[in-house]
Amino acid sequence: MPSSIGFRPTPDDERILRESALPGETTSDTLRRALRLLDHERWLVQFRADAEPLKGEDVNTEPEAW
């Protein structure tokens, strides 16, 4: 895995970075935050896919496990 990533932002990328940066945040910080948001979004998609088959499950009808 490379220790750094080259990135040539388009004008639209630059606008997004400029408008999305928190006070005192570097471009790298903003990109890291965006990557973590993407990772969380991916997790949510998987969570919803895993939960969908269980939508109608009523755990109150299950016997106690202990």
Rank of each mutant, 00 (worst) to 15 (best):
E64I: 08
R8D: 15
T61N: 09
W43P: 00
E57S: 07
R18T: 05
T61S: 11
G24C: 06
S28P: 04
L31Q: 02
L54P: 07
L35N: 06
E41L: 13
P2D: 08
A65F: 08
L35C: 11
L22K: 10
L31M: 10
L44I: 12
E41W: 10
A51K: 02
E57G: 04
R42H: 14
L17C: 05
S28N: 11
G6W: 13
R33S: 02
F47E: 12
D12P: 02
E25A: 14
T30N: 06
K55P: 03
P63K: 02
E19A: 09
E62K: 11
R48F: 11
E19S: 11
G24W: 01
K55Q: 13
A65P: 09
E64W: 03
E62P: 06
I16P: 00
A21L: 10
K55N: 08
I5S: 10
L38N: 12
V45Y: 00
V45H: 03
F47S: 12
W43D: 11
G24D: 05
M1T: 05
R15F: 01
N60P: 05
T30R: 03
R33K: 02
L37Y: 04
P53S: 02
R8S: 15
D50V: 15
K55F: 03
R8M: 11
P23L: 13
D58Y: 00
A34T: 04
E64V: 13
D50R: 14
W43Q: 13
R48I: 06
F7D: 03
R48M: 08
I5N: 03
L54C: 14
L38Q: 09
R32K: 11
G24Q: 05
R15I: 00
L37P: 00
E52F: 01
G56W: 00
I16M: 07
G56Y: 00
H40G: 12
I5F: 09
I5H: 05
A51T: 00
E14I: 04
E41V: 14
A34L: 12
P53T: 01
L38W: 12
S3F: 09
L35T: 06
F7M: 12
A21Y: 09
R8G: 14
L22H: 06
S3L: 08
L54Q: 08
A65T: 15
W43V: 08
T10N: 04
R15Y: 03
P53N: 00
E57T: 01
S20H: 00
R18L: 04
G24F: 01
R36A: 04
P53Q: 00
